[in-house]
Design a protein around this nucleic acid. Structure first.
Lengths: 161, 161
DNA sequence: GAGGTTATGTTATTTCATAACGAATCATCT
DNA sequence: AGATGATTCGTTATGAAATAACATAACCTC
């Protein structure tokens, strides 16, 4: 996926410069409010996710971690990802084994994605699960988290195909 | 998950004896109709999935593969799983890295699961995605497959907690 | 039965993720 | 300040999940 795609520009360019700094600063503020610590490794992994043009694999993050080219050790990145997911700053996309920064400001813990099988972008959207799970909850289930990943073609790749 | 669960009986016992044989035979019939081949390794992996009390990991299947206790080689099982998924006889649960036999007779390729974080069972249900993706398709997306996995507590474990 | 297609067996490797443990940092209380 | 407990981090090592590559065998059909 993304390999046979003729696009040169990303459908979802990463943040740079001031926009990146603002996004990181916003996360730092949120952390302060909840007494959570945005430590250097956590901040660094968040930066990498925000800079990226699409979902990042864990070992991509590991390789890109050091500004000097030195990779991180796997636990460093996985721990940071756990933290970022816990606070809602990042999401794991199960069907890609990859991670994206959260792009839905201040919403619930429910993440849903439209994943383009051509260009590899993953667009987050806000699902409405109420009708889906009314039946389940009526049957006695207690739903805690939901993973919804739809795969197909984004508008740009669909036109191209 | 499933580790801290005090249940002794499975919420979803696997098939045995005649029921198992019937299920496998039904799959064989479907294969014949579409000129697909339910070869020995494919049949064996399907049996293992049907016998199981819950989602099976790939390496559980590998270990259980030989009736004599001999494990399979990984590609044997992964290829069989690809086949079973392609024909709709099995589903992969992304958030567990595990596989279940399809329990929804003759339905679409849409699978959705309610996964109990206590006892580990995964109940398949038939979701209605139309409302979810009307907006996406209106925006130009071509949705091809959907993965929906809800995690929480099943009725039995919820009562117990 | 020749030739193309599909499936299998086998070896090795790659990719993804976590266990375990000691050292460092931070918050809090006295 | 110093003791205490909780988090976080760095590091080594290992475990778990999945695939690459290629040779062999079985199947179809002409």
């Amino acid at each position: 996926m993304g390999d046979d795609c003729r696009h040169t520009e990303s459908a979802q360019p990463g943040l740079e410069g001031a926009a990146l700094a603002n996004a990181v600063a916003a996360a730092a503020v949120k952390c302060e409010r909840t007494r959570e610590r945005l430590t250097p490794p956590r901040r660094r992994v968040l930066e990498l996710l925000l800079e990226a043009d699409g979902p990042m694999k864990a070992y991509d993050l590991i390789a890109a971690y050091g500004q000097d080219g030195e990779p991180a050790k796997p636990p460093t990145v996985y721990r940071a990802l756990d933290f970022l997911e816990r606070l809602g700053f990042a999401h794991r996309i199960e069907s890609l084994n990859a991670y994206v920064p959260c792009r839905m400001e201040g919403t619930s813990h429910r993440a849903a994605f439209l994943i383009c099988e051509c260009c590899g972008t993953a667009e987050e959207f806000e699902p409405d699960f109420a009708p889906q799970f009314a039946a389940a909850e009526a049957a006695g289930y207690a739903v805690r988290t939901v993973t919804l990943e739809a795969r197909g073609l984004c508008p740009a790749c669909k036109v191209e195909a």
